[in-house]
Write a protein that binds this DNA or RNA. Structure first.
Length: 886
DNA sequence: TATTCGCGGGG
DNA sequence: GTGTACGCGAATA
């Protein structure tokens, strides 16, 4: 029989551990494989161990074995292998030995992972086993139960058919001013969506109120029982929902406890489903099933302005979500049958959308690929845990080669005594960008720089030289030394060689694949890349089992040296100007307007430089920036052109470190930024860009910008009176309450507001957009220019030498020639930044001297007051908005 | 210029 | 469970 691994755990039966593998076979049957006879063990170095363990009932055996210690180039040594009876007692023994000065190795490996690694089993991989009788009597639900006497891992790219179930709940509290609390507020509605369907149904809605299309429940306890029953009968492999990990599931578990309903709906019938809370977050454990929270996956995979289900569904699925205000759920629940129906539909819609996101957006695919490559269980990979992924992989590879891993240090050293700060690891080398807009810039990248460096210089804990050995030793820029590959091939370089070779193979397969096969190969290729790139950072991470700054900084120092020398070569030997570079990439300006010519130069540079690079280091020609505008280190924009798969040139606007969407920016800001970036890059016309900006400013001043584009949104999280500071969205609600407006937003609702003219504090001038429209109130164009448009745009214009004075057309004529010649107006810019800016002559009704405060209707021709002071403009909206012009 | 603070997502 | 695991922008020192 063959089946795919979904989850693994163990139980003690007659005081002996039995490993249980929960999975699915090709036919879609649930399988539970049992493995008996595997015992927990770890390693210890030191002498005279026996006397401390003699007579200890937990210890099954102590033997001396030959293993290589992980850090430092050395020969194998004799270590104790201690085998215990009970995995759970390991920490006790480990800590006792540690307190007596022994050093334990691999004494913190989860038992299931110990078993998996020793047997070559990984999450979502396939197991082949011979079926046999004599099934262990542990309480699990599975259609096929197998005693695994013999098992082997099978290479298989396909996936077993899985069953998915989405859950969403609604709760109602008496106090609409707070988030619901499980201690107090009941669950009133539960919607379940099935894929594939359950007894011919695509969904079920449970509620304590009866209604059309609803499975009525006598009370909350009855409803929760029905939920547990449905879960067990449908028996899903994957449970999803939107923020289910941090809301619905912990809430349901709490309510079950409260109502005396046993939370037993995993595939082990003797273990409760439970949650653990840490770092203000929940982790749900449902033995044998996968928890996949659509919200968490979307959040980590997409860069969006907001992550509410309504916004995300619209963006990713193109599906609109009908809205029920969070604060009005109680009203609907207690309302008419029609209102209740609306609430039930809303609940159903939420679980449908969570399901649609998971399936249509194939949210699991990337994680399945990562699980298969790394050997970790899918549940652990979905919970984040990059470290675990790597350490699992390392454990397997180190053990295969006869090495053992350290246990994690029991406390993390905050700083070492030498005054060094924790983890002062230097990163990549970043070249100071040459200011201005550059045309025809080649982009060349070092191919997988860090993995390639590790391979080229044989960097590994197992090759690190600590004594004065001199022969066959590679010295890195900061002094760390490693034996060469001939002396001993490191495990790290070997792992990376395999991962990179595998990726090459997959990419080749991709070239003749299409559809689903192509997609799955692409995911695999991506996962291989992610894994390969994760190893270098591992040694610099303070909680890693092998935390070693010497190794981490050996890698980055080699990186810095490599790119610096490459820049020198390009400028010295080839005479090209390198306008920017960061860690593993160089941007090179070339004297041609012709794309094919530039491409030829790029390829030639790549070949010639690669020839002289050591080992497998490779500098690749990536693409051409037709236009390249660096703002600062790590921030640039470019009009990029590269050859597509079909050999045709394909163009794209790329931005690094520049945000165009931010939750506290109105639409006008994002839109204007995009437009201006487009004009600068594609038209290369500064005048046009400035003109565009001024047009927007003028429209703003004339009230010609659609108010919708000026709305800023924020969620209200507490009751308005419980805010300490003054916040714009809260002020809006207070105003609405004051005038008894309809539809006043409540806690949890999003509030859109605009800033209007006035003399009060900024936050106090926030207003409800529809109120502004109805009453013809003037918006504060000053605010929109100074706080919304200028901050991001000034940075962009600043990079091409246009300061805010020129931008607003108030100072001297714009010196475009100067601008292009990279004039640095840094001092002026700094000064301007500290001062508010005049926005429009329309807005001005007088002048004041900045020194003596003498008012003028018109300024004297000399441009200064009699006392010598400069002028302040006083605007129509009064002294508070007074602005200075230089 | 570094460090703490607060909030998101969910009802 | 052989555990312990946000992440980023804003406000503040």
């Amino acid at each position: 029989m063959e089946f795919q691994v979904l989850d693994v755990d163990y139980v003690l039966v007659n005081e002996k551990p039995i490993v249980r593998v929960f999975g699915k076979n090709r036919e879609g049957e649930t399988v539970c494989g049992f493995y008996e006879g595997f015992m927990p063990y770890f390693y210890v170095t030191g002498d005279g161990l026996e006397e401390h363990l003699r007579g200890n009932p937990q210890v099954l055996s102590i033997e001396k074995v030959k293993r290589c210690l992980p850090v430092g180039y050395q020969e194998p040594s004799e270590v104790y292998k201690i085998t215990l009876r009970n995995p759970a007692k390991t920490p006790e023994i480990r800590d006792m030995l540690r307190s007596k000065g022994y050093v334990p190795y691999e004494a913190d490996i989860l038992f299931k992972y110990r078993w998996m690694n020793d047997n070559g089993i990984g999450g979502m991989k396939w197991i082949k086993t011979t079926e046999s009788n004599g099934i262990a009597t542990t309480s699990v639900t599975a259609e096929r139960k197998v005693q695994m006497k013999h098992l082997e891992a099978v290479e298989k790219d396909e996936d077993a058919p899985l069953k998915y179930m989405a859950i969403d709940i609604e709760t109602v509290s008496d106090d609409a001013g707070k988030m619901p609390e499980a201690e107090r507020d009941p669950v009133v509605l539960i919607s379940l969506v099935f894929e594939p369907g359950f007894r011919g149904k695509k969904h079920i809605i449970l509620s304590t109120r009866a209604g059309d299309g609803i499975d009525p429940c006598s009370d909350e306890k009855d409803m929760l029982k029905k939920l547990v029953d449905t879960l067990n009968e449908y028996d899903p492999d994957v449970i999803t929902g939107y923020n289910i990990n941090n809301f619905d599931m912990p809430y349901l578990i709490d309510r079950m406890r409260k109502n005396n309903v046993k939370p037993v709906f995993g595939r082990c019938t003797s273990k409760y489903v439970r949650y653990d809370k840490f770092a203000n977050r929940y982790k749900i454990t449902i033995i044998g099933r996968l928890m996949a929270d659509s919200f968490q996956i979307v959040k980590s995979g997409w860069n969006l302005k907001r992550y509410g289900l309504d916004f995300v569904s619209k963006e990713l699925l193109g599906e609109e979500k009908g809205d029920v205000k969070k604060s009005e759920i109680g009203k609907y629940w207690r309302g008419t049958q029609a209102e209740f129906k609306k609430l039930a539909d809303y609940c159903l819609q939420d679980s449908r959308l969570a399901m649609n996101l998971l399936l249509k957006m194939k949210l699991l695919d990337k994680y399945v690929a990562l699980a298969k490559i790394s050997g970790s269980l899918l549940n652990d990979i979905l919970g984040g845990g990059e470290i675990q992924r790597i350490e699992n992989y390392l454990l397997r590879e180190f053990n295969k080669a006869g090495y053992i891993l350290p246990s994690k240090a029991d406390r993390v050293p905050e700083e070492n005594g030498n005054g060094e700060k924790k983890d002062s690891l230097k990163g990549g080398f970043v070249l100071e960008p040459k200011r201005g807009i550059h045309s025809m810039v080649l982009v060349l990248d070092f191919k997988s720089m860090y993995p390639s460096l590790i391979r080229t210089y044989n960097i590994c804990p197992t090759t690190l030289v600590s004594d004065d050995k001199a022969e066959g030793v590679i010295t890195t820029p900061l002094g760390a030394r490693f034996v060469d590959r001939k002396t001993r091939y490191g495990i790290m370089p070997r792992i990376l060689e395999n991962l990179m070779a595998e990726r090459g193979k997959v990419k080749k397969q991709m070239s003749q694949a299409e559809g689903r096969v192509f997609d799955s190969l692409n995911m695999k290729q991506l996962a291989l890349k992610v894994m390969a790139n994760a190893f270098y950072g591992y040694f610099g991470y303070s909680r890693a089992k092998i935390h070693n700054i010497a190794i981490a900084s050996a890698i980055t120092s080699l990186g810095r040296r490599t790119i610096q020398e490459t820049v020198k070569t390009i400028e010295g030997e080839y005479g090209f100007e390198v306008v920017y570079g960061d860690t593993d990439s160089v941007m090179i300006k070339v004297p041609t307007e012709n794309l094919d010519e530039a491409e030829r130069m790029g390829r030639e540079l790549s070949t010639k430089i690669t020839e002289k690079l050591p080992g497998i280091m490779e500098l690749e020609f990536e693409k051409i920036f037709k236009r390249f505008l660096p703002l600062t280190k790590k921030r640039y924009m470019a009009w990029s052109i590269e050859r597509g798969k079909d050999g045709e040139w394909k163009e794209d606007v790329v931005m690094k470190g520049i945000e165009t969407v931010r939750r506290d920016w109105c639409e006008l800001t994002s839109e204007t930024m995009c437009q201006i970036i487009e004009i600068i890059l594609k038209h290369n016309d500064l005048k046009e860009a400035v003109k565009y900006f001024r047009d927007i400013v003028n429209k703003l001043l004339d009230g010609k910008i659609d108010i919708e584009k000026l709305v800023i949104t924020k969620t209200i999280t507490k009751r308005p009176d419980s805010y300490v500071g003054v916040q714009p969205h809260v002020e809006v609600i207070k105003k609405m309450m004051g005038r008894k407006a309809l539809d006043i937003p409540g806690v949890g609702d999003r509030i859109g507001y605009v800033i209007v003219k006035g003399t009060q504090l900024l936050s106090k001038r926030a207003e409800d957009p529809s109120y502004v429209k109805d009453n013809g109130i003037k918006l504060d164009s000053n605010y929109y220019i100074n706080n919304q448009l200028l901050p991001p745009l000034e940075r962009i214009f600043g990079a091409i030498g246009v300061d805010r004075e020129e931008l607003l057309g108030m100072g001297k004529q714009m010196g475009l020639a100067e601008a292009i010649n990279n004039h640095n107006h840094k001092h002026e810019q700094e000064q301007a930044a500290r001062e508010p800016v005049i926005v429009s002559v329309n807005d001005v009704n007088g002048f004041l001297c900045s020194k003596c405060n003498r008012p003028y209707r018109r300024p004297p021709l000399v441009g200064r007051c009699e006392c010598g002071g400069s002028f302040l403009f006083s605007s129509a909206s009064g002294p508070a908005d007074m602005v200075r012009i230089r």
